[in-house]
Structure formats: structure tokens, C-alpha cells
């Protein structure tokens, strides 16, 4: 199966919470990402899904090293991103690029589009100004924009065009891994399709690996080879797209999938409606984080945290129910 491009091992990110008493540090913390393990193979697309606040974006920022993990290891091509020196990190960053959610806020309003796309080359001192200009024109063409637009400002473009500019910038340094943090959720549905198709084409053209974060299950279904489902900072289920969609093992995944709208009004689909709210990430419940809302809760769930159990070769879920079935 070859070596994974990225391996995330037991990564935690806890944000300290401001205490109620001033100047006295609080011992509480928000467990935004709690003990996450997964790997990404070269050339594949790993989707990360989950509701708002489950730690998807924090995970993206951790991999991109915009923030440092509290604990854990992240191996990118066998180099640990956490313990790298600042200079080594800069070179590794050439290989990991990110497309942000908001196409409006992620382009500097005072720079021309050409300058924005050129910037990664300038930062890493690649080429001279003539070759950089040529690369910018080439990239604009690749993402389907007129190369003549490079002297315009970002605000002169539509949302979809801006996201294309963001994608062009992410491609500038020929990265291997691109993290897409909800790249289409701010766009119109019609434009979403265009951008997603662009991303798919680029993947084929440049053998890119994607980590695709989204809460839109239809988008994920279209884009991803494998899917990881997150709940309250933890991965509760991870597996290939077929496995997750056709035989979800974790009750949360089942509920999530049942929430996808049906395509025709004559279709009947059983809808699992969860009760209660997502617990606070400051004080997650003991045992399985999902036990308070789980329709199949057992006594064991309230005390013991279930590990990620392998059900088939490419499918793991963290639920006590799975063991029971085997027994």
C-alpha cells in the first residue's frame, strides 16, 4: 500500500480557558482536538466531516502548523512537523498548502491578483521576476481565469473567481498536499459545482492529495475517497467512502447520514433524530463523548472510552456496539 503522505498520531489541541477569577489561571481547557489519529495516502482525498465546532478547522490549522498541538506527532513524508525547526518548517510548508473557507477574507484587499499569486514564489525566493510573472499567467489559465486579470484587485471578482484565485495561489509552489477548509461552503450551489470540478481536475492533473473539510455531505460524497467523521474533537469513524455511506457503524455517523435530504419526495427514508445538544468541549462527558445522545447507549459507554476498532480493513469506528456484534 506504500507509505502514507501524512500521518497524524495522537494529536491533541487544548485551548486554555480564561478563569473566572482574574489573574488566576484556570485549569480548564477547551479540548478542540482530542487524541486524533489518521493517515492520508498520496493521491487520495480524505474528507473530514462533522458539525460546527467539532474541531475540523482546528485540525486543519494544526496540520498547516498555524497553531501548535498540545501533544502528538504529525509525520509528513516521515518528518515530524511538530518538532521541526522554523527554517525546516518553511521548506515543508511549500508542500502543504491551504485553501480557506472565506474567499472574500483570504485575499489581501490591497494587493493585485498577480501579486497575490506570485507571493509564495517571492517568499521562498523561487525564480526571477520574469519567470514568476510567466508562472502567474500560467496558473491563472490553469484555474480558468483570464491571465489579463492579474492587475486587478480581489474585490473586482466574484466569490467563485476569488476561490479560483485562492486555489491558484495554493498551487503556485507545486505542493503535494492541499488542505481545503470548507472551500465551497461560502459559494452558490451552481458555483460550488464549478469549483469542485476544478479541484477534481487539478487533482488528476498534478497528482494532488487533498484533505477536504466540509459539513456538506453531498460535496464530500462527490469529492472523497475516504471519510473521517468527527464528533467533539474526536474521530468517531473513519473509512472508505463506500463503507461509510453504505454501512456506517457509529450511531453518530448513522444519524448524520440520515440527515441528508432525499432526492425525491416519494422516497421514504428513516430519519434518526438526535436529542439533546453537543456537550461542552470544556468538560466532555466521561466514557464515550456521544453517550448522552446515543440511542443505543449502554452502561459501559458511560465509563469507558471506546477505541477505534477495525471492522473491515479500511474501516474503523469507535463504538462499544461493534465489539458486542463480534462477541
Amino acid at each position: 500500500m506504500g507509505h502514507p503522505l501524512l500521518e497524524v498520531k495522537q494529536v491533541k489541541k487544548h485551548f486554555p480557558v480564561k478563569g473566572t477569577i482574574p489573574f488566576v489561571p484556570s485549569r480548564q481547557s477547551v479540548k478542540a482536538v482530542d487524541n486524533v489519529n489518521f493517515h492520508v495516502m498520496p493521491g487520495e482525498t480524505l474528507g473530514i466531516v462533522g458539525e460546527s465546532g467539532c474541531g475540523k478547522s482546528t485540525l486543519a490549522r494544526l496540520i498547516n502548523r498555524l497553531i501548535s498541538p498540545t501533544e502528538g506527532e504529525m509525520n509528513f513524508k516521515n518528518k515530524d512537523l511538530v518538532s521541526l525547526s522554523k527554517r525546516d518548517l518553511r521548506t515543508v510548508r511549500k508542500n502543504i498548502q491551504m485553501v480557506f473557507q472565506d474567499p472574500y477574507a483570504s485575499l489581501d484587499p490591497r494587493k493585485r491578483v498577480g501579486q497575490l499569486i506570485e507571493e509564495p514564489l517571492v517568499i521562498h525566493g523561487v525564480g526571477d521576476s520574469v519567470s514568476r510573472k510567466r508562472r502567474v499567467a500560467e496558473l491563472l489559465e490553469i484555474v480558468g481565469l483570464n491571465p489579463r486579470y492579474q492587475n486587478r484587485y480581489a474585490h473586482e471578482f466574484s466569490g467563485g473567481q476569488r476561490q479560483r484565485i485562492n486555489i491558484a495561489r495554493a498551487l503556485t509552489l507545486n505542493p503535494e498536499l492541499i488542505i481545503c477548509d470548507e472551500p465551497v461552503s461560502a459559494l452558490d450551489v451552481s458555483v460550488q459545482a464549478q469549483v469542485i470540478n476544478l479541484l477534481k481536475d487539478l487533482q488528476k492533473q498534478f497528482q494532488l492529495t487533498y484533505i477536504f473539510i466540509s459539513h456538506d455531505l453531498n460535496v464530500v460524497r462527490y469529492m472523497c475517497d475516504r471519510i473521517a467523521v468527527m464528533y467533539l474533537g474526536k474521530i468517531v469513524e473513519i473509512g472508505s467512502y463506500e463503507e461509510i455511506y453504505h454501512s456506517p457503524k457509529h450511531p453518530y455517523t448513522q444519524a448524520l447520514l440520515s440527515a441528508i435530504p432525499v432526492e425525491s419526495p416519494y422516497e421514504n427514508k428513516e430519519r434518526i433524530i438526535l436529542t439533546g445538544n453537543v456537550p461542552s468541549p470544556i468538560a466532555p462527558p466521561p466514557g464515550c463523548a456521544f453517550h448522552e445522545r446515543c440511542p443505543f447507549v449502554m452502561d459501559k459507554c458511560k465509563t469507558e472510552t471506546p477505541p477505534l476498532i477495525e471492522t473491515t480493513e479500511a474501516h474503523r469506528a469507535s463504538c462499544h456496539l461493534i465489539k458486542k456484534e463480534e462477541e
Partner: peptide
């Protein structure tokens, strides 16, 4: 706090830049 500052940092830019 703007996103484009995060973007620039993720590209590997130094603080001075």
C-alpha cells in the same frame, strides 16, 4: 486577525514580511 494574514503565514512568510 484577518484570514489573509493566516494565509500568508501558512505560505511560510516571516513576521517582517
Amino acid at each position: 486577525e484577518a484570514d489573509y494574514i493566516d494565509v500568508t503565514r501558512s505560505l511560510g512568510a516571516k513576521n517582517t514580511r
